[in-house]
Write a protein that binds this DNA or RNA. Structure first.
Lengths: 213, 213
DNA sequence: ATAGTTCAGTGATAAAGTCACACAGGAACA
DNA sequence: TGTTCCTGTGTGACTTTATCACTGAACTAT
């Protein structure tokens, strides 16, 4: 493996000590790591898979804030741990994977002893800040039809996406009806073909066709 | 003073070493600390006054992301320093004040040697994350008229606010025309009275009247 | 006073969000 | 093999917000 987890690059002595107190847990897709209002039980460091973090507004509408992948530590949890306040958002496993649950004491010790670990934490924070700033800009200033098309293209590894309009609305932070209408318009333009719970990219949006051509 | 700067609580030896390499600078209101695209020249730690951070979208519209106050370190700068990439946003001094410019080496040393400093940094990051998450929720799900009223009330220390509609539009991440129309409607409802560059709170919005009563 | 600049107001139109409801596709079950 | 139920989708009507294109008002400098 060319890539090591942030825990693997610790000095041997420190690593051994840490690993004794860290539990590694497997998470199936769909598993909720924490919900809004709950209190922090330890810092999840994602080792494999991906987790999406979303929040629900007073209106009851939700929006996906960002995703965590390999070597991301949950910066939200750090904040909750420090302040003792509950989570403001919810974390849901998207691709099954595993995470190391780091207890507070170990976290403090690693921050104290390892420059590499510190760097990893700062990078996680940096990514989160960047993600959120970009999201604010998107939500505030970009048109919904463009955002939808971009989202579809970004996930178009295969030509078919399995998702409901409601879930897609949460991804974009809008209402289900808006997504349904925009998708219908894309279908009229022969860019997608729709069926229950499924979106097939067909026209200019279908990058897999281009790759295969 | 009951409150000490994060630098004051460092152990004496460390503090002396650090202060030798840290420049304290005064900033007048309106002064731009950094602009989008620029590269990081050092980490500003706000000692006094306040700084607003705003970003401009491709469309040319801007939005205020968050504000920094006493003891906030510019988390955006940490990220820029680490990755070597340019700033994505712009920082403007709002209330004149002063900031300590911490060079990279000193920052690394303080992170290594001082748990108190580390805690301060993590708290700054936590606040930023919180601010941005709340902002996303606001922008995505709240109505503009409510957001405008809340903004006005939050700043209504005195009954008069000195701001142009354009500046207010940037605060809320919308267009100047929208602000003008909503304000005009508030004026019809006797909540405010408008004049060039000035908004006077008069009706239910005027908390200073309540306090004085 | 005059010219130039910044601010504010407003109509027309397009995009997006809300509300209310109809209907379609599957799953479960009799 | 229907019938029932649930979830997902489509759509009309209406409101709110964004955009475009102007007009005119208020201040500034000469």
């Amino acid at each position: 493996m060319p890539h090591h987890s942030i825990l693997d690059i610790l000095p041997e002595q420190l690593r051994k000590e840490a690993m004794e107190k860290i539990q590694v847990m497997r998470f199936p897709a769909g598993r909720i790591l924490f919900s809004a209002g709950e209190h922090c039980q330890g810092l999840p460091l994602v080792l494999k898979g991906s987790v999406k973090v979303q929040m629900t507004g007073v209106s009851g509408h939700s929006i996906v804030l960002y995703r965590m992948g390999k070597d991301d530590i949950c910066t939200l949890s750090i904040g909750c741990l420090m302040t003792g306040r509950g989570y403001r958002a919810e974390a849901v496993v998207e691709e099954e994977g595993e995470a190391a649950m780091i207890p507070r004491g170990v976290f403090d010790r690693l921050m104290d002893q390892s420059p590499e670990f510190r760097l990893g934490i700062m990078e996680s924070y940096g990514r989160r800040l960047d993600d959120l700033m970009l999201l604010v800009e998107e939500v505030a200033f970009h048109r919904m039809d463009e955002r939808l098309e971009e989202w579809l293209q970004a996930r178009a590894s295969r030509g078919v996406i399995t998702i409901t309009h409601q879930e897609l609305a949460v991804e974009l932070g809008t209402a289900r009806e808006v997504v349904s209408r925009l998708l219908k318009e894309l279908e009229r333009q022969k860019m997608v073909s729709l069926s229950r719970g499924k979106i097939e990219l067909t026209g200019l949006l279908d990058s897999s066709a281009l790759a295969g051509a």
